[in-house]
Amino acid sequence: MVPETPDPAAERPDDASPKADPAPERPDSPEPSGDSVGTPLVRFEKVCKRFGDTVVLDRLDLDVEAGRHVTLIGPSGSGKTTILRLLMTLTQPDEGRILIDGAPLDARARKTIGMVFQQFNLFPHMRVLRNVTEAPVHVLGMDKDEAAERAKGLLEMVGLGDKLDARPSQLSGGQQQRVAIARALAMRPRVLLLDEVTSALDPELVAGVLDVLRDIARGTDITMVCVTHEMNFARDISDLVVMFDGGRVVESGPPEALFHSPRHERTREFLSAVR
């Protein structure tokens, strides 16, 4: 069953009460997940999405297995970002269904998915530490001190251990994006969605963010789904690249294979255009 209300969380007022609904037991750091062999962690089944007369996704089938780092590429308007927005329940599919670990995408499943936005979208009225602790405390029901300790650890990891009390507005774009990554990780996601995370950054700030993402990709078992226009980013981080056009998958494969010997004319055109 695909959630039909604009906001599935509304159906679950219990979520606010902390202990009633503990998040699935998951360690902070990597642990090979053997449970999901066979079932893909994220599955799109014949998903259609239209905006007015424009068909953005056309009966899309897409599987992402646990632990994979998938990059979606394709011309703008090809539906890449819509896939992330559907997973984040920011928009609903018109047809088809989305399964997370075999179960329909609902409020509970959404808690296992984190997202990092192109424009960071930090909460400007909260200091850096609070940006990272707010959701774990109020959504997961985590103890405040525990959340703060974990947040400090995450901020340390992204190289911002000295900015806990800073306002987002006092940070550079790259720093803000690294806080946003820490904020998403603080929710202990199984899936991390990255929507053009480096495109809003000045070139010299991109490397710091990429370093952090590379560490996450190599050091954890978090499944990553990235949308990007930067092919180096795709090559660097992902183990599977999926080329989209017209709301459908054109082809997919490991980055090296897809970048060096694309099978489809459409992929070749796209790759030569972005290079």
């Binding site: 969380a9 679950r12 606010a16 984040m88 984190g114 936005f117 424009q119 979208n121 998403a184």
Partner: peptide, 14 residues
């Protein structure tokens, strides 16, 4: 975008 960020963190509407 602020609302979307809040949705992405699974905050309830309230």
């Amino acid at each position: 975008a602020q609302r979307e960020a809040a949705i992405a963190l699974s905050f309830t509407p309230a």
